[in-house]
Design a protein around this nucleic acid. Structure first.
Lengths: 97, 97
DNA sequence: TTAAATATATCGGATGCCCAATATATCCTA
DNA sequence: TAGGATATATTGGGCATCCGATATATTTAA
């Protein structure tokens, strides 16, 4: 339990990244800003890049280098994984609007 | 990232407990079973009771001993905390149905 | 061609969720 | 009044998330 009240809710970052990338492909900084909009604080580089690396290693996202930035997008496997993760998510939090 | 796919989603337990107790007061085992229904696996005693203790120490839930069992319910502060946690939750996961 | 700015990436460590094992207490049954 | 079943509780530790600090690469500005 941390200062921001109860309910740490750690462990949702990868899920959120998959969800955001399913809306549109983005590079890391864009992702960090989208997350900041939602949760109030911007994830640090030490948070966002290891998470992206992990998702890539699991074959759920792929990268395309484009000059300075790297564009991340979902793989087919990532889309499938997001779908089942969503179902799990919805069953767990059924009724929490 | 763990075996059950991506998206660990740990750190939601306290939140879920507050939510479930807002529906009806329960004792620990009932809570564990409700959580099992939602997430598929039953939290172990070493998970559920420390979580309850923590929530009690933060003044978010209160206990009433009743023979063998202990009935847990939300305090006023717990209700308030749940409300803001819900708002945070909904903003973070906006669009994830 | 420096210098600053931006993006990506890694490392070490703090935090705390969660579990397995174990212990205690109460209730029920024979 | 034993013995089993159920509920509560604690302890120790594993492990993933997440952050701060630091490093590298590319782009832009001067």
């Amino acid at each position: 339990m941390r200062g921001d009240g109860c309910c740490d809710m750690r462990g949702f970052l990868s899920f959120l990244i998959l969800f955001l990338l399913s809306k549109r492909k983005m590079h890391g900084q864009e992702l960090a800003e989208e997350i900041e909009k939602r949760k109030g604080s911007k994830p640090s580089p030490g948070t966002i890049y290891p998470a992206l690396k992990s998702l890539r290693e699991y074959g759920l996202i792929e990268e395309r280098k484009e000059g300075k930035t790297v564009i991340y997008s979902l793989t087919e496997r990532g889309k499938k994984e997001l779908k089942t993760a969503k179902q799990r998510f919805c069953r767990i939090f059924l009724g929490v609007y």
